[in-house]
Design a protein around this nucleic acid. Structure first.
Lengths: 216, 216
DNA sequence: CTGCATCCGGGCCGATACTG
DNA sequence: CAGTATCGGCCCGGATGCAG
């Protein structure tokens, strides 16, 4: 494990001393999205992290009070560790424009829709209508639920969805983010059942800021 | 420069592909706090970063659209790069409890009060009173100004401060965060001129979450 | 079979020297 | 002042081994 501290009495530097190492924030992402997970689950969700690195990082996070170990090989975030949701989702929101570049050879897991949707529909807006959207992309179906002004994502299909979207992840996400209209998404292989305007009605707040070079 | 991407179609992973390398977020911190800076300024504020690394990171950030280069050796954040304020200050807020551990041998710059204060007094609260606090700690005086419900930090002394605080950084920050009372701060060498209750009146929102092990 | 530890090649990091 | 060049050492990544 990296012993090297930045040696700066600064909140950012000290935070990075804890979660700044390579892979560390992605391990926290897995625990944030999925809740408590076994070692093997983490290894699977991290798509090829070296096993010694995963063990190192988990030890480091446990020692620093970010992660707790239940019984045998089950890890979960401490209360303090759950507080990382805010910086992590803020980072996801900032990096949203980078998702305009298609997945290509990159891995994709349906569960990763959680930070993406948190970036797009973050915050609470009482004027936001209740809606249920079923998403089919990646390895398993997911359901976006808007209730009481808050948008959340759950694993599994919906009972009675207002809208069903299926297709490759970049098309689905482009549609959700408002970067693609129905025609553009259709060109990228996205199928929609239901009234697509329900998406725009969810995205009631500030528009997504422009990215580095993708104007769409 | 690191070519290695996480290879995941995930907003967090792609964000970390841009700003996840060692030192990178601290370079952004310097540009966020101080505005446009020359190469040498960055090198000085980063307290001993290797010069080749600084050059590598700046090249990488420029290529990815986070940083712009003005004329000769002056760097500034792009519009998109400025959006990193949110995840960075969120990280600073999360890492606030780590500041309870004294500076010790760690470097300290007065300018680093900016993220700390942003973490403590973040957000806008119209009920927050107007106040001016002069801080003497580190290499240069700073002024905390509360106007129209927003708290900001500026370099330099104040014209007519309501409160003047001086002492070692961990004592001053503990006092600002509400983790130390006047007596506790005094034990750590902090001198206060003025009504200290003005600080508590600024911190009107949610209390700071508990850290990994420092109950105070 | 899961949860790691060990080993090793290659690349990244860190410090210094050096140049326009 | 603004970087480039270089080199040792450590970290990362991938494969393998082993214990419960």
């Amino acid at each position: 494990m990296r012993v090297k501290s930045y040696g700066q009495y600064c909140a950012i530097a000290r935070g990075l001393d804890v979660v700044g190492d390579r892979w560390t924030l992605l391990i926290v992402r897995e625990l944030l999205i999925n809740g408590p997970r076994r070692y093997g689950d983490l290894q699977e969700g991290l798509a090829g992290i070296a096993t010694n690195l995963l063990a190192d990082r988990l030890r480091h996070l446990e020692q620093r009070g970010v992660v707790d170990r239940d019984g045998r090989g089950t890890y979960k975030l401490t209360k303090w560790g759950q507080g990382l949701a805010e910086p992590i989702y803020a980072l996801a929101r900032w990096a949203g424009p980078l998702m305009a570049e298609p997945a290509g050879d990159d891995q994709f897991r349906s569960a990763w829709l959680v930070p993406v949707v948190a970036g797009i529909f973050g915050g609470v807006d009482p004027s936001r209508p209740d809606t249920t959207i079923e998403i089919h992309t990646g390895d398993s179906p997911m359901t976006i639920v808007s209730t009481r002004g808050r948008v959340q994502v759950q694993p599994g299909p919906a009972d009675c969805p207002d809208l069903v979207i299926s297709g490759p992840p970049e098309g689905v996400i482009g549609l959700l983010a408002g970067a693609l209209d129905k025609a553009g998404a259709s060109e990228r292989g996205v199928l929609v059942h239901g009234d697509i305007r329900r998406i725009a009605r969810l995205n009631t707040h500030r528009p997504m800021h422009a990215g580095p070079r993708y104007p769409g």
